[in-house]
Simulated scan of single mutants.
Amino acid sequence: MLLHFFKKQSLFIFLLLSVICSHQLKAQDFKDVKEFFTFYPNRKAVQKDSTLYLAKFIAAPVVSYSPETNFGFGTGAKYLFKFKGSGPETRVSNMPLSLRYTLNNQFILYSGFEIFTNQEKWVIEGNLLFRNYPRLYYGIGRDSKKEDEEEYDYYQVLVEPIFLKQLFTRYLFIGAGFRYNQIFNTRIEEDGLLNITKPNGFDGSRAIGIEAATLYDSRNNVLNAQKGWYLEFTHGEYGEAIGSTHNFNLTKFDLRHYFSPIPNSKDVLAIQTLGHFSRGDVPFNELALFGSNQILRGYREGRFVDRDLLAAQAEYRKRFGESRFGAVAFVGAGDVYNSVDDFQFKNLRYNFGAGLRFMVDRLEKLNIRLDWGFGQSSNYIYLGIAEAF
């Protein structure tokens, strides 16, 4: 275990040195590199009409790292734009797309998009995902054992668009959408715990449901907020009558607040509370997963699995003057449980950690992030683009 820890520490130092070495690049050199990967689809139109937003299509090789994937290599693209007729009152729409292959033999195609129409009368958001994904399984419940670890593999297709209309006030949006999530070609260990216990949908499932959604989003920047509130609440009903393999419902909420704790400072304190609650004949792959590169960093995604998850985290984000560099420190806590009666504060598991930031786009405040998260008996490194939340 000690050797494993120092291997991780060496990896962290290597990545840290790589980031520091990049500081030796001249500002103009870095700008030239960034511009090489940036395309401007409406540049000519903007030259004729300065009221238009200069849209950007950024495509570049990407490297990522997380405990679930090991190193991932591929291509990342991000389309940042505003519709014609949108002014400063409309935030920039973000349509990312990433295609990665990892050292754990995983293939991942993903887009999590957020589109604002003119004057933000509508918001269109959602997720598109296709992947084959070996995952570790330890059993269901908060008391699953590390020694029961086994690997299972599956393919996943997820399509989840949500359409929201601005109602009542500037930042409040209400709407609905649908969610299609299919797990197939599942491969499990013949004599493993998953095959012995056979939870609902362990060998594949299909969830098709209608989602009602409410969004309050006053963030000043979608990619890296410095101030504002974000609250997303969704409730989905899934049934065999509309094509699902199981009858169940799924409720999620995501509450965040961003503010500067020091007046006239660029430092940001970000706070998030996250909930996942499922009821009915819930298939295995729709249960809540404890740990990820976004929440409860320091635990493997799915280290603990159950019907419900409640978690919170706080992150202090420090900018070093006018440079592209920054650092963060974070703490969090959470738990999975089977029903509301099972939740107890004494059962919370905690995490903490720190990380570095390098701003690749000053205008959109887009960062490369390198985090080292610690759980109660585990620690992991994360390398990626954009903030954890």
Rank of each mutant, 00 (worst) to 15 (best):
Q156P: 01
R324Y: 05
N127T: 12
Y230Q: 01
C21D: 06
I208N: 12
R349L: 06
Y152V: 11
L25C: 02
D29I: 13
D335S: 15
K346A: 13
I115W: 01
V159D: 03
K266V: 01
P61G: 12
Q313D: 14
P67E: 13
H4F: 07
M359S: 01
R219K: 01
Q119G: 11
N221F: 01
L194T: 06
Q226R: 13
D217I: 08
A60N: 12
K346N: 14
R369F: 13
T75F: 06
K56M: 12
V159H: 03
G112F: 04
G72Y: 03
H257L: 05
K252M: 15
T117P: 06
R300L: 15
R170I: 06
H246L: 10
R362S: 05
F374W: 03
E149D: 06
V63H: 03
F184Q: 05
F253Q: 08
E125F: 02
Q313I: 00
E150R: 12
F39A: 12
G275E: 06
E211Y: 07
N185T: 11
L167W: 01
T117M: 08
F5Q: 15
H276P: 13
N220W: 04
N338W: 02
P199I: 14
N264T: 02
I262F: 00
L383A: 01
L109Y: 09
S377C: 13
H257I: 08
P41Q: 05
R131F: 05
N42E: 14
N105L: 08
N247K: 15
V63I: 10
F374D: 04
F39E: 14
T102V: 12
P161L: 07
L370P: 00
L223Y: 13
E232T: 09
E150S: 10
Q28R: 14
Y138K: 14
L215S: 07
F233Q: 11
Y337L: 07
G87E: 05
I140D: 04
S278E: 03
V63T: 02
S218M: 14
F304Q: 04
R131V: 06
